[in-house]
Write a protein that binds this DNA or RNA. Sequence first.
DNA 1: GGACACATGTAACAAGTTACATGATTGG
DNA 2: CCAATCATGTAACTTGTTACATGTGTCC
Lengths: 194, 194
Amino acid sequence: MSLDHILLGYLQTPATGYDLGREFEEGARHFWFAERSQIYPTLRRMEKRGWLESHQAPSERGPQRKVYTRTQEGLAELRTWLTEEPRIGHERLAYIAQAAFLGSVPDLEDAIQVVRRMRAVWEQKLAYLEYAESEVLAQAGDWLDQPREAFHMYSALRLGLAQYRAKLAWCEETIHRLERRRAAAGNDATEEVP
Amino acid sequence: MSLDHILLGYLQTPATGYDLGREFEEGARHFWFAERSQIYPTLRRMEKRGWLESHQAPSERGPQRKVYTRTQEGLAELRTWLTEEPRIGHERLAYIAQAAFLGSVPDLEDAIQVVRRMRAVWEQKLAYLEYAESEVLAQAGDWLDQPREAFHMYSALRLGLAQYRAKLAWCEETIHRLERRRAAAGNDATEEVP
DNA sequence: GGACACATGTAACAAGTTACATGATTGG
DNA sequence: CCAATCATGTAACTTGTTACATGTGTCC
């Protein structure tokens, strides 16, 4: 039940389901995503469990907002989740499967194209995080002095950056090796050597 | 529907649900996981769609095996899935959320301990992949000459290695910075500076 | 005889996705 | 008036998890 705990994390300051949905559309989408149609019932369930409380509040523009506040039980639950164990489980990285089975694509050029398109996607995502980092660094001079909350948020951002950079380095290496393979195959005049 | 396509990828050679389950317990668990209770009905569904065919075969040791074979339609479906688009979507990386919200853990030492435990888990996973790599390299001298299938499998393995190494580098950096923070806080005699 | 690996499944439940319904307010 | 943004939700469906049921053959 990670979504519950991610919502608890963001509810350090009170927010509505709509606000939380925006987090997943922006920064949070780099590690998690949830539709609002999942967020709204989840918040209700969490309130029933006593992790949250809610009250109505007027909106600047639009209908009434249902603002959720984290309770002491909610904070305790979050702390348990955070410290109990590393939340490393069964990740679902379909792109690794795609890379692994690219041998089933007969034309080598098509396979290279797949990796090039992966690179394009990750370059965009990296650019987003790099922009986010530049904003953080502009606001906070020496981030070692920042409050704990900001420190760990930035730390997580750096984890994201490191991972996208590792992916991009792999893309460059892989495209290069595939192109060398293509050149070798081209010299033989045949597409594949059995 | 990634599970379907991962199964199609592994069914380059015929296999049973039990065999495929073992893949997820071993190498495949680094990018995907599925229980056999999910695999068996999925294979049935895929057979109904015409992506697979099955036949009974005796087991060396145990009851009859239901061996699935990939059809031409199955292979075509896999090729479409592989080349259509990069399978980069909404990854669910709960450990990044954990890193991001560590500011909600009041004792800095507990937060450091979380990162140390992440490091321990990823070190184990990296060791597994490094062993797998050593086996691959022992069998195949220059892997550039390997058949396409083996080439891409090894390439995916390198992607996994690169990512665990990036995670571990982040752990080292983060633990180091948190320890410096702790030292600074210790000099003040107070736990947290507001 | 008992533990273990092999082998296939079902049922109930939880989590996540897709499509849709409803309605307020603002800006062009 | 229309489109966009704000705002909350429901229903049907797919995907994934947990717990259990059943039975074979091998090794100690």
